[in-house]
Computed example of a mutant assay.
Amino acid sequence: MRKSIRIIALALSVFAFSGGAALAEEAPASGQAQRVEQSKTRVYYFHGNMRCKTCKKIEALTKKTLEEGFATQLKDGSVELQVVNVDETENEHFVEEYQLATRSVVVSKMEGGKETKWRRLDKVWQLVHDEPAFSDYLRTEIAALNQGAGS
């Protein structure tokens, strides 16, 4: 046990002395670092603590549309879904950032790990009871975001 502790302490000392250079040199080769650099579309579904039947349906239709229309992109990480409770303290900033007046879906373009543009999809409430129209709207907005139409 003492030998293990000494080895760990020595490794930490070498790491600290080198300024973390060994880790920094290895980072670009990792899959995680490459994913940060790639372009991706993030689809947010924002909800609160209290969730009505319609709110749950918007989430379900969003997930279904992505799973059916973007299965390959979900798998390779170029499209991702994040379901976020904006009533949680750490997520309250999204309300102001995306000017959320109600629970909503937002599509966001990420480049190099940073958001470059976004679109809030306000029509999801109008289209929630028309699944084909809802799915078309979501797919169209993702395509428009990825083709350069701004927020």
Rank of each mutant, 00 (worst) to 15 (best):
G69H: 11
I7Q: 11
S30Q: 11
H129R: 06
G150T: 14
D130K: 02
W125P: 00
I142W: 00
T62A: 06
L23F: 09
P28D: 12
A27Q: 12
K3F: 15
R2W: 14
T72I: 11
V36Q: 05
K3L: 14
V105Y: 01
E96D: 10
A11M: 08
L66T: 09
I58V: 14
V128K: 07
S135T: 14
L145S: 04
E97K: 01
S13I: 15
V79C: 08
V86P: 00
V107L: 04
A143W: 15
Q34S: 09
C55W: 15
Q73R: 11
K3P: 07
A60D: 14
T89R: 12
R2Q: 13
K114L: 13
V83L: 06
V106P: 02
K53C: 10
F70A: 01
R2I: 14
F70K: 06
E80L: 07
S13W: 14
N91E: 08
E97A: 03
E88N: 10
L61I: 09
F15N: 06
G31Y: 15
H47P: 02
E115A: 04
E80A: 04
E131M: 05
L100E: 03
G20K: 06
A11Q: 00
Q82V: 15
E141Q: 08
K53V: 15
S18H: 05
I142E: 00
D130V: 02
H129G: 07
L12E: 02
S4W: 02
E90L: 07
E92M: 11
V84K: 06
I58K: 03
S135Q: 11
R35A: 08
V95W: 01
I58T: 07
A71H: 08
L12I: 13
R51S: 11
G31V: 13
V86K: 02
K56W: 02
Q34W: 15
K3D: 14
V83W: 09
R139M: 12
V14C: 08
L127C: 05
I7Y: 12
A101E: 15
F17V: 14
I5V: 11
A16Q: 08
